[in-house]
Design a binder for these strands. Structure first.
Lengths: 202, 202
DNA sequence: ACATTATGTAAGTAAGTGTTTATATATCTT
DNA sequence: AAGATATATAAACACTTACTTACATAATGT
């Protein structure tokens, strides 16, 4: 029997987790099925992770180190607020589309397991994203680009609806969802919302 | 032992489902725990519902007949588009806040069970809501109230982010979430987005 | 070449899952 | 009051769950 290092097995196991969620649904995410997918026995799984919960936490950590750090780079770059907001939105959408399993896992498992640490972790990921968007919005206001009368927190709340809705539509509609220029279309609406305007009516 | 009609037991069982989800998490939603909560034995559960899946489908049906019919009434009423949009949003938010268990159940169980019929049902609920909002938006445009250049589908997609985000924040933040005037604040942003405007910049 | 260590397996654990069966009894109808 | 029916129970069903144990062997360092 061929043997692999813990590092390689951990990657294989995490990859298999996302694969199962995407192709078979969360209720098929058992250690038995997981072991079968990786091509090892159930016992071997627990050689590389001390529990199933630990696998999920490790995947969350990956999101933290991959997606969030990319988003941080975009939010803090030297470009215009407008350009940064667009790049930020595109990055989020691309990630959600390419890592569908991850987001299903995060959102549903937090509610499902009723696990405080897991929920807290997810909460931090969302809060961090919101604070980065908040920075971009504030910068855009300072630049005289956007309406300073808007409440920044409200704008970020509204903004976060976009990736979350995208995720739900992807889950439910699978391939029927119209993702062409999704970022561009949503960005255009955000611009209307943020713009300094002379309203014709109240 | 006291006996109740199937109708009463069905209501008690469905109530217990939402109770368990809210207070203990979805993973504690076993027929055993359910029976214990209602105060009957497991076997009795299956006298009133033919399967656990049927209980969830029945709850979905309740959402359909309660929430959706209320929303339809609002959307098709004689009031102004502006007033209808606000009432619609408020109704949705109130329902989500008062029936947290329901929405956790719907969103997560669809992904979890990978159940086509269940997913389809949820998809229909969302599509129906979107089409009602679409009608309000189109009416508002005809009334000369809102920007006719906006894509109605995009607006409804953006709109749907609001209740969905609210739901996620409620799940994760529990009581820390600032729900004061939530509808009013989000509605104000929607108005900015929809308004006919003279933009100062592109 | 040999002892050590990391990675594996096969078979088990106890507890939990949704569901069914055989049986009892409360309630309703006649 | 007697019979029919609906509602209950207790106990089991066959199966799955995450996880553990005892033991084996491939890879590694000396």
């Amino acid at each position: 029997m061929k043997r692999e290092t813990t590092e390689i097995r951990q990657e294989q196991i995490k990859k298999a987790v996302l694969d199962i969620i995407f192709n078979e649904g969360l209720d098929r995410l058992s250690t038995r099925n997981l072991a079968y997918k990786v091509g090892i026995t159930e016992g071997a799984i627990f050689r590389h992770f001390k529990s199933k919960r630990d696998i999920i936490l490790s995947i969350m950590q990956d999101v933290q180190t991959n997606l969030i750090s990319d988003l941080r780079t975009i939010a803090l770059s030297a470009e215009s607020a407008e350009q940064r907001l667009f790049s930020f939105l595109c990055k989020q959408c691309t990630y959600l589309i390419e890592n569908k399993g991850v987001t299903i896992l995060l959102f549903t498992e937090a509610a499902h397991m009723n696990d405080r640490a897991l929920k807290e972790h997810l909460r931090e990921i969302l809060i961090e994203q919101k604070s980065l968007i908040g920075k971009i919005v504030k910068d855009g206001m300072s630049e005289g680009l956007w309406n300073t009368k808007l409440n920044v927190d409200d704008v970020t709340t509204m903004y976060m609806g976009i990736p979350i809705t995208l995720n739900i539509e992807l889950t439910l509609n699978h391939e029927r969802f119209d993702r062409d220029n999704f970022c561009r279309r949503m960005f255009s609406l955000l611009q209307h919302m943020l713009s300094i305007q002379n309203q014709k009516r109240m």
